[in-house]
Amino acid sequence: MTTWSDDEDYGPSITRRMLGLIMRQLREQARMSTIEACEAIEISPATLSRLENGQQGVNVHLAKSMLDVYGEVGRHDEILDLCRRSQRKGWWDTYGVSGRGYITMESDAESVRTFQALLIPGLLQSEDYARTLFQNSENVRADRVEPLVTVRMIRQERLRGERKPLRLEAIVHEAALRCLVGGIEVMYGQYAHLAELAKLPTVSLRILPSSAGSNARMASGFSVLTFPDKILPDTLYIEHAFGGTDTEKKAEVDAAKVAFKRLRAKALDEAASLAFLERVAEELS
């Protein structure tokens, strides 16, 4: 049975997912099916699914009903405190960013493996590069550009942080380096930013040259997130033109890990990647 420690300082995303995992375990321990639980608690199967998957928070009143239905008597204080923690706002809320999606997962992850084919990964983007992307996005209002740039830069601070650092292993296709985002000056700044971050002990950057050939997994970017102490299963996040989706399904996550390993085998090593980056910058002049 999953337990929670008050000493852990996790954000609302991982807290919701942890709470959902506990609630699912309690339901299964009570030998209740989804339908039986929904009828007793008086919620829909879709709502229970979102609660157990951590996609939706559980308020204290609903949690009390669920605990009564599941016959749990020894963990009320722990679980109700978890409910209150799950309702907290993340730091990104200050900038008007939704408390759902990739950023909330990344904030609690201890490591990220990411592959990007056409753009520099967000965690490695320079300020001007990120600003240009947001300015050119049809879905971003002009008044939202600077807050979104700020959020992206704050995310990168964990790569340099001593407390709760984030380890990043990034594979970037050569096409992303050669795609002119914002013009030559912006790209020069981006190359310099990449070179600087690549030297951090928390960052591994590998370039996948075009000469390595094609791969079916190169159709879209994807990331695999790992959480502290395996408190939650590894999660796969897949980006697409209109947003992204995430899954904890082991078969899909494992397939992504295998794909990443194969891409890494084709990519240049870290030293060769920095040298390649320098050559691309020289060719741009």
Score class of each variant (00 low, 15 high):
D7G: 12
K230L: 00
G189T: 06
R152S: 13
K261A: 14
R163I: 09
R88F: 05
Y10T: 10
S126N: 04
E78F: 11
D246I: 00
R50S: 12
T247I: 07
E239M: 12
I14S: 12
G99D: 14
R17D: 04
D234H: 04
L274D: 09
G243N: 06
I103S: 11
G74I: 10
S13V: 14
H61N: 14
F227E: 10
I43C: 10
T2P: 08
D68P: 07
A176C: 08
S211D: 08
S111E: 07
R167S: 03
R31A: 06
V186H: 02
V73I: 14
S111F: 03
I171W: 03
A212W: 09
R144F: 04
N215L: 07
I41H: 11
G189I: 05
R144H: 08
C38D: 06
A267V: 05
F222K: 00
F276Y: 15
E248N: 01
I22S: 07
E270Q: 09
L124V: 02
R160F: 11
V69L: 14
D108S: 01
P121A: 02
Y70C: 09
G74K: 13
I79Q: 11
A63I: 13
E28F: 11
G183E: 03
L180V: 06
G101R: 08
I238D: 13
R167A: 02
S273E: 05
L124D: 01
M18G: 02
W92P: 01
R31E: 07
G57M: 04
S223T: 02
K64C: 11
L274V: 09
A30K: 03
K64Q: 14
L194E: 08
S126Y: 02
H76E: 15
P201A: 00
P233S: 04
S98A: 13
E146I: 01
D128W: 00
V224A: 00
S285D: 15
L51T: 02
E8T: 02
R131H: 03
L148K: 15
E162A: 08
L118Y: 09
D9F: 07
T2Q: 11
T235K: 06
R152N: 13
T47I: 10
D93Q: 13
D234K: 08
A265M: 12
A109N: 03
D128Y: 00
N139D: 12
G183Y: 04
G213W: 05
E72Y: 08
K230P: 00
R31H: 06
G20H: 01
F276A: 14
E52T: 11
